[in-house]
Structures are given as structure tokens and as C-alpha cells.
Amino acid sequence: MSIKLQDVNYIYGIGTGQEIHALKNINLEINNGEFIGLAGHTGSGKSTLVQLLNGLMRASSGVIYYNGQNIYDKLYNMHSLRSKVGLVFQYPEHQLFETTVINDVQFGPKNLGLPQLEMELRSFQALKMVGIGDELLDVSPFTLSGGQKRRVAIAGILAMQPEVLVLDEPVAGLDPAGRDEILGLLKKLHSENNITIILVSHSMDDIAKYVNRMLVMNKGEIVLDGNPAKVFQFEKELERIGLGIPQAVKVCHQLREAGAYITGEPITAEDCAEAIYQWLKV
């Protein structure tokens, strides 16, 4: 699996006199097995970008290649692209609609035209992957907790067996335990099921600990690209575009500015405490 964007532009409202240039000359390559965090404040273009990835919207100019094939080619099978690149929208639990959990998860595979048996098998597997037990298969999705509902919604996408899972703000509105639950699930899907994950969020604290590559967008452009430790070195730049950095990184930066010798770029509280401990010991 690979996705390649070449000189991609997206302009809302072309010809209306109120054009908004949402994406400007994006060049980007997403490789198999990556866990990407896509950050940027509201209106930076990140939601526009992810909707181009599975062909929901068409770039105003530029080309997108999926596994080397131009997805705008006349003969390209857009339908199969949409099952390969699964998109989980913000507040996906608002899209639950069926009477039982299992029916809701089966809706996607059913629309792929799969045989009954295959459809059921995939749905059971998907629910197992997100940790929804058999006892919940026949209950109404509306009786579940917020975190459970969201996991059922994600299972609905997983049942399509995507190669890439794109999630737009998957932890918005959840309490800390719910946040850890969803992010832990994504980590597991990435490591155990080898799914490439693109996590869209404006909370640095949430994504920094999980992803191995961060993309930061501002005004329709990708301004920073690299592993979290590298991206967080640009503290001033991140703050200027309204994002900020995790508190652990901030603590280390401040100590270093005051002359402390702290090695590495710790992101979690534990690593940060260890780095400080090493410095205090000397």
C-alpha cells in the first residue's frame, strides 16, 4: 500500500467569487505501515485532505496515486478505493442507525455485495478487533456508552477490511479513559493487524505518544513533517500556528533554556521524569 499526492490543490467555491484555497500544492507520500498524526487548527485543511484520500472529493488540480495508480484515471475503480481507504468521520457514533450492533457493522460489507457468510465473518472479526463482546451483538447501539458506540462505528469501517484507516478527531468529546481506550485500540490495529493509520487531531498531547510520524498543516500547506521528537523542536512555530506542544516536552525545553543538560526529546511523563532524574543525579 502506498498513497502519493502530487501538486494537489483544492479550492472551495470555484467561480463563485468567494474561493477558498483549502489545499496548496500538497506533495506527500504515505507508506505502508505508518502511524501518522495529522495536526492543524480548525480550517488548516486537514479534513479536506483526508476526504481526498478516498476519493470523496476530487482535487481541483494535481494527481493522487494509490499503489501507483492514478485514482483520477477514467478506468480507475473508485468503489474499491473507498473500501481500501476507510474514513471514520468526527463523532462517528452519530451515524449509527441500525436496530442491533451486528446489523450496523454489517451495513458496509453488505453494500460491497459480499456473500452472507463472508459478511458475517468480517463483522464478527471487526467487532472482536475493537473489543466488543458477543453479549453486545444483539443490543441496540443506542444503549451503549460513548466509547463503546464509537468502537462499534469504527468496527463498521474495519468490516470493509481497509488497508488504511483515516480517523477525523476520533477522541473528541470522550473522557480520559475513553480517550485512552480508543487510542490504545488504534495502536493495536496498527501493530497487530498491520493497518496504516492516519489520525487527525488538534490535540498534540493525544497523538504525540502514539504516532511515528507527524504532519502539521497550516493554511492549506504541510509545514512540518517528521517524527514527533523532531517536530516538537519547532516549539515557537507550533505555538504561532496555535497548536502548542505536550507538557512533557515543554518542561524539558524550559529546563534546557535555563541551562539544564537534558538528553533526548521525551514525550511521555515517564520518559520526561527519567530524563530529569538523570540530570539531577549528575
Partner: peptide, 19 residues
């Protein structure tokens, strides 16, 4: 199901280490 701010967490980790 709640947590503490990250910076408080760092402080508690350090205390655990005897700081």
C-alpha cells in the same frame, strides 16, 4: 476514569524516584 495534568504526572513520577 479521569486523569491528572501531564505536568502533575511528571512531578509524581519524580517523587517516586525520590526527588
Amino acid at each position: 476514569k479521569l486523569t491528572i495534568p501531564e505536568v502533575t504526572k511528571i512531578a509524581l513520577e519524580l517523587i517516586k524516584k525520590g526527588i
